[in-house]
Design a protein around this nucleic acid. Structure first.
Lengths: 349, 349
DNA sequence: AGCGTTACAGCAAGCGCTTTCTACCTGATG
DNA sequence: CATCAGGTAGAAAGCGCTTGCTGTAACGCT
């Protein structure tokens, strides 16, 4: 039924070993033989049996990419960049690897299960993207898993995620969420804002905490009070931004600016503000984070911090493939760039 | 170094066969034995070797999901829905499958290469999403590939993609792009629009052609002429929408409406119109297609056709897993729903 | 009491490939 | 002309798991 290596070998009148060597190209094979084999492969329309070769060679060509939410462009952009470097199809010659994107939906259990599944497949590499959950039990479980993966020869790279505990020899490309958050708030302070609402992401995420820390650091640096009523936690989606904004307005109708956890949330915030009859930025300013493609299209265009998602993803992909040296110490911080646009202005009055 | 089935067997004092059967749960094993085995698995922290079991069982637990652009929420949403049904982690009990998302970037070659890679992995199922390329050579190549996959036992499902040629026994869930396009244009015509520009997607995609056909059908039904100068082809991104709009305006400054190939393009169109000093919908109306999450947030909110991406994806996923009966004849058409919002209005004058 | 069943467990034969080691042939070398 | 190195090809031993088939003990039946 299915064509095997042996069939090809028979047809090319060589041994299976030779066919295997032609296909893997890591052993000298005379040009004429090679050609004969290749022809047989073609004629028989032979496709290597992945599991069999993975078993025999004890390595596979799978590369896992874990994302929190595949429907969110933040992750989609990184995943696309990573996958483009994984080689896979379209990549440069050699090592055709299958970059597989796994959607954890932000669930710690799913994250762990996917890691096990990848471990089971003996993945060549794993890239984890996005913020981590701060629950210590889970963090420990992940760290253990990563260490096992690494022990089994799987390269582990973290992209846009805080470094794993020492010992897990995972390379980490971390976004400077703290610095970005600080820049944003500093920008607002410079414009003259003093009463700012903050819409945070899910409380247990590192990303949430770091961005919020940046915000608070900016407040502190300028001697501004940090009123706890001015912070509302939510999810990283539009809906959450909408609701959180209404809540903030209820708590303090005199806010002059809203700082959102990310661009998607900021969009929800804008909608809520408009629905509340406020004009942006005349009555109230709004800032986001990430600079996703749609942010420049918002009306008014969103002031935000651009994160080089594509670049970081590509680099993570290359490191995962062993095509680029990991940064010294295994950790690199990727900074964002403040993009000042129409959604921020001088406060009224 | 690595723990194998045999190690577990030794520890549990049973044969490897028994361990395998406990793990696969498809053969009677006494409760006490099972428990002993499970304990051993736990103690040794054993992880099944995927390739080995795939080889021995001649099936794997990989399910491929092909998308054109993973950074585009249109695909992201479908992929997330499909993956959630693949079982994978978080899914209901049994068959833990690894749903892998492959990003073709719209390239026919990559599409083919990914299919080969999945064939090589002996994937349990493959779901292809989004429009197909109409180049006949490529279509034939894909059809051949799909047929081979099917022959090898891989279930093939098309989601939001036209049915494959007969013979390829692939299940198809097709979006009614033609009908949607027609509804949109009919809505504009009813509002009184007569001069409408159309921004199409890439010319070789089926989606592009179908939506455009719907538009033209509506024009024809109302006896309106179809001026070729009123159609511009581009890509499915914002930039393309922006540029195409400027081009349309150049060709006919008196347009009263712009019909965009999808919401992303529509957003670009809105930006171009605003930059040209036109107000939406007072001076000119705009419609999109898909109803992606951000469309309701545009200012004004976009009139568009909602496609049940999540539902269709979930259904495709279930069919791929064999958990739902394929539609009769293997083909189902999924209709969109017209969402009338602020971006369309009665034309001026 | 004897025999057919049922319920489990084990044996062993692969699944299709990679890779080490060995064998061979050729041409170069002394 | 004998010897040796270099370059190629083959034989065969697994890789770790699944599964058909073969026991075997316990049970229920006539």
């Amino acid at each position: 039924m299915t064509v095997t290596l042996a069939d090809v070998a028979a047809r090319a009148e060589v041994s299976p070993a030779t066919v295997s060597r032609v296909l893997n190209g890591n052993y000298p094979v005379a040009a004429s033989t090679r050609e004969r084999v290749l022809r047989a492969v073609d004629e028989l329309d032979y496709v290597l049996n992945g599991p069999a070769s993975a078993l025999a060679a004890a390595t596979s060509d799978l590369v896992g990419i874990l994302v929190n939410d595949i429907a969110d462009p933040f992750f989609g952009i990184m995943a696309a960049a990573i996958q483009s470097e994984i080689g896979g199809p379209g990549g440069r010659a050699g090592g055709e690897r299958l970059g597989v994107v796994c959607n954890t939906g932000g669930s710690p259990e799913r994250e762990l299960t996917y890691l096990t599944l990848l471990q089971r497949q003996r993945a060549a590499a794993v890239v984890l993207t996005g913020g981590a959950v701060e629950d210590s039990a889970h963090a420990a479980a992940v760290a253990t898993k990563l260490r096992k993966l690494a022990d089994a020869g799987t390269r582990v790279v973290l992209c846009g995620r805080p470094p794993a505990p020492a010992g897990t020899d995972a390379v980490a490309l971390t976004f400077d969420n703290r610095g970005g958050g600080q820049q944003l708030t500093e920008h607002l302070i410079e414009l003259g804002h003093r009463r700012m609402g903050y819409i945070a992401g899910p409380e247990e995420r590192t990303t949430t905490r770091h961005r919020l820390e940046g915000h608070r650091a900016a407040l502190a640096a300028h001697g501004l009070p940090d009123d706890p009523r001015h912070t509302v936690y939510g999810r990283y989606d539009r809906r959450s931004g909408y609701e959180a904004t209404l809540e903030l307005l209820r708590r303090d109708p005199d806010l002059t600016a809203v700082v959102a956890a990310n661009d998607t949330v900021a969009l929800g915030a804008c909608a809520a503000l408009r629905d509340s009859g406020l004009r942006i930025p005349d009555d109230i300013s709004v800032v986001g984070f990430d600079d996703l493609p749609f942010s420049v299209d918002a009306v008014p265009a969103l002031t935000t911090v651009r994160l080089p998602l594509s670049e970081a993803g590509a680099r993570a992909g290359r490191i995962a493939m062993g095509r680029e040296e990991p940064p010294p110490g295994g950790i690199a911080t990727v900074r964002g760039e403040l993009m000042v646009r129409g959604s921020t202005g001088v406060p009224k009055g």
